[in-house]
């Protein structure tokens, strides 16, 4: 099936584990969500330096790399480059007729693109608010944190799947009923 990933979960999971070990040996474990704050800090610092520096949270992350990009930001930028290249070379690029609407979404909610965009935006905002309150996301807390046996990361992993599973079931009521 053309919809199936190139690598099985076994191979991809193994490679991701090995990458995590490599990153921990060379620099530190993997993490993504901090870079959203760093990006906000950089942009706000360009636009309104005083506002950025007087915000305690932005200042904490902004000052670390002198209000510029550091290792972590380059890692996230690299994810964009690496993901784009592998999609391109495995011909997964631009495969869908309407890239803004996943087919599964369309079956449940119809072809309203604005509605999908509202969900995508609101979902993203909740993701990062939650990730910053927790101190990490799926990569930093779940994959890196649980691998380091951090107790808080186990708690985070359990609570995201608890509320994620409930929310998904509420969203896809019709699909589940049929």
């Amino acid at each position: 099936m053309q919809d199936q990933p190139v690598l099985s979960w076994k191979v991809a999971g193994l490679l991701l584990g090995l990458l995590l070990i490599t990153a921990t040996a060379l620099v530190k474990p993997l993490g993504v969500s901090t870079q959203y704050v760093v990006t906000d800090a950089i942009v706000l610092h360009r636009a309104a330096p005083n506002a950025a520096e007087s915000n305690e949270y932005l200042n904490k992350y902004g000052q670390r790399d002198d209000w510029g990009v550091g290792y972590g930001w380059m890692l996230v930028f690299g994810m964009f480059v690496g993901g784009g290249l592998s999609a391109f070379f495995t011909k997964k690029f631009r495969q869908r007729e309407n890239p803004s609407l996943p087919s599964m979404w369309r079956e449940e909610f119809g072809s309203s693109s604005p509605r999908r965009m509202i969900h995508a935006f609101a979902g993203g905002a909740l993701l990062l608010f939650g990730a910053r309150l927790a101190g990490g996301c799926t990569s930093g807390h779940m994959i890196s944190g649980i691998s380091q046996l951090t107790i808080g990361s186990f708690i985070f992993g359990i609570s995201i799947f608890a509320s994620g599973i409930v929310t998904a079931r509420l969203l896809y009521k019709r699909r589940l009923a049929s």
């Binding site: 979902g123 608010f129 990730a131 101190g135 799926t138 609570s159 995201i160 509320s163 599973i165 929310t167």
Partner: peptide
């Protein structure tokens, strides 16, 4: 935080 993140995870269908 995890409960908030989980809602976002399902609503967006992606993680950060």
């Amino acid at each position: 935080a995890g409960l908030i993140f989980g809602v976002g995870f399902a609503v967006a269908g992606y993680c950060p």
